[in-house]
């Protein structure tokens, strides 16, 4: 009176299922990254991967550690809150190795106009000029020093 007498084929079938489940667990162990689920339903190491992207803009703090004279000059004028690389471009490579990478001086004709060209869309209190009739082709830096753009002779106008 053995109830399992004719159930051998069922056990073999069940065995196949168990085997498939084990294979699933092993394969899953291989393909799911170790940090998946560390913080949520994503790969935790993705954050450190993204954080490993190289920095291109060194940040004004880096510039000011060496260029203290320019930082002082700039802090007294209207451009005090314009950071260095906003005009000089991305210079993290120069900050890492000042001798190997030397920055080129930006062209004031395009640079100044980028912010200060008059247009109705800009805030009214922002200093704006029409570049074609403002200086008759005289370069901006003839009158305005970019680090402290107020004209000294005129008693610090704009």
């Amino acid at each position: 009176m053995n109830i399992f007498k004719d159930a051998g084929h069922l056990f073999r079938f069940a065995g196949l299922f168990v085997l498939a489940f084990i294979v699933f667990l092993v394969v899953r162990g291989y393909v799911v990254p170790k940090s998946f689920g560390q913080y949520g339903h994503y790969r935790g190491d993705a954050m450190s991967d993204i954080a490993a992207h190289p920095v291109k803009f060194a940040g004004h703090q880096a510039c000011e550690t060496c260029h203290t004279d320019k930082a002082d000059e700039k802090s007294k004028g209207k451009h005090a809150h314009v950071n260095c690389e906003a005009c000089h471009g991305a210079l993290a490579k120069h900050a890492d190795d000042p001798a190997a990478v030397t920055p080129t001086k930006p062209d004031t004709a395009t640079l100044c106009a980028r912010c200060h060209t008059a247009t109705a869309a800009k805030p009214k209190e922002f200093p704006q000029v029409n570049p074609s009739d403002h200086s008759n082709g005289v370069p901006c830096e003839t009158c305005h020093q970019p680090h402290n753009p107020a004209i000294a002779d005129a008693g610090g106008a704009k």
């Binding site: 993204i50 954080a51 803009f57 940040g59 809150h81 690389e85 906003a86 912010c115």
Partner: peptide
Amino acid sequence: CTLCYHRITKGLTTACCENCPTG
């Protein structure tokens, strides 16, 4: 946008904020 995750985790601000001339 990653909010410059590689910068803010190093104590820097984002590239857009660093370069905005008017704040």
